[in-house]
Protein backbone atom coordinates (compact mmCIF):
# COMPACT_ATOMS: atom_id res chain seq x y z
CA UNK A 1 0.00 0.00 0.00
CA UNK A 2 1.63 3.24 -1.13
CA UNK A 3 1.56 6.43 0.87
CA UNK A 4 -1.00 7.98 -1.42
CA UNK A 5 -3.49 5.20 -0.71
CA UNK A 6 -3.22 5.32 3.04
CA UNK A 7 -6.12 6.92 4.92
CA UNK A 8 -5.64 10.48 6.13
CA UNK A 9 -7.83 11.48 9.04
CA UNK A 10 -9.79 8.26 8.68
CA UNK A 11 -10.87 8.99 5.09
CA UNK A 12 -9.47 7.53 1.91
CA UNK A 13 -7.23 9.84 -0.06
CA UNK A 14 -8.00 8.07 -3.28
CA UNK A 15 -10.09 10.88 -4.74
CA UNK A 16 -7.50 13.57 -4.09
CA UNK A 17 -4.61 11.50 -5.23
CA UNK A 18 -6.15 10.05 -8.34
CA UNK A 19 -4.28 12.50 -10.54
CA UNK A 20 -0.94 12.12 -8.82
CA UNK A 21 1.73 9.47 -8.85
CA UNK A 22 1.84 7.20 -5.78
CA UNK A 23 5.41 8.09 -4.86
CA UNK A 24 4.74 11.84 -4.76
CA UNK A 25 2.45 11.65 -1.73
CA UNK A 26 0.30 14.67 -0.96
CA UNK A 27 1.58 17.68 -2.83
CA UNK A 28 0.36 20.94 -1.36
CA UNK A 29 -0.58 23.83 -3.59
CA UNK A 30 0.90 27.25 -2.90
CA UNK A 31 -2.38 28.37 -1.32
CA UNK A 32 -2.41 25.33 0.95
CA UNK A 33 1.20 25.96 1.94
CA UNK A 34 0.44 29.59 2.75
CA UNK A 35 -2.59 28.61 4.82
CA UNK A 36 -0.60 25.96 6.70
CA UNK A 37 2.24 28.41 7.35
CA UNK A 38 -0.12 31.06 8.72
CA UNK A 39 -1.78 28.48 10.99
CA UNK A 40 1.62 27.28 12.22
CA UNK A 41 2.73 30.84 13.00
CA UNK A 42 -0.52 31.50 14.88
CA UNK A 43 -0.09 28.33 16.98
CA UNK A 44 3.54 29.24 17.73
CA UNK A 45 2.56 32.76 18.81
CA UNK A 46 -0.26 31.42 21.00
CA UNK A 47 2.08 28.95 22.71
CA UNK A 48 4.74 31.64 23.21
CA UNK A 49 2.09 33.93 24.72
CA UNK A 50 1.02 31.13 27.07
CA UNK A 51 4.63 30.56 28.23
CA UNK A 52 5.11 34.30 28.83
CA UNK A 53 1.77 34.49 30.68
CA UNK A 54 2.73 31.64 33.03
CA UNK A 55 6.21 33.13 33.57
CA UNK A 56 4.92 36.62 34.40
CA UNK A 57 2.07 35.31 36.57
CA UNK A 58 4.59 33.23 38.52
CA UNK A 59 6.64 36.38 39.16
CA UNK A 60 3.51 38.31 40.16
CA UNK A 61 2.23 35.67 42.55
CA UNK A 62 5.64 34.91 43.99
CA UNK A 63 5.55 32.21 46.67
CA UNK A 64 1.76 32.41 46.57
CA UNK A 65 1.73 30.79 43.14
CA UNK A 66 0.95 27.47 44.76
CA UNK A 67 -1.97 28.90 46.74
CA UNK A 68 -5.05 28.72 44.57
CA UNK A 69 -8.21 29.47 46.53
CA UNK A 70 -11.41 27.84 45.39
Amino acid sequence: MGRADRPVGGVSTGIAMSEQRDDEGIVLTEAQKRARRSRSVAIALALAALVILFYVMTLVKGPGVLIRPI
Binding site: T13, A31, A35
Partner: peptide, 14 residues
Protein backbone atom coordinates in the same frame (compact mmCIF):
# COMPACT_ATOMS: atom_id res chain seq x y z
CA UNK B 1 -15.30 20.00 -1.21
CA UNK B 2 -13.24 16.85 -1.06
CA UNK B 3 -12.43 15.60 2.41
CA UNK B 4 -9.02 14.31 1.42
CA UNK B 5 -7.76 17.69 0.32
CA UNK B 6 -5.38 19.41 2.73
CA UNK B 7 -7.03 22.23 4.62
CA UNK B 8 -7.18 25.72 3.18
CA UNK B 9 -8.43 27.19 6.45
CA UNK B 10 -6.74 30.45 7.32
CA UNK B 11 -6.19 32.05 10.70
CA UNK B 12 -9.09 34.36 9.85
CA UNK B 13 -11.40 31.35 9.43
CA UNK B 14 -10.46 30.12 12.91
Amino acid sequence: TRLAEPSLATVGDY
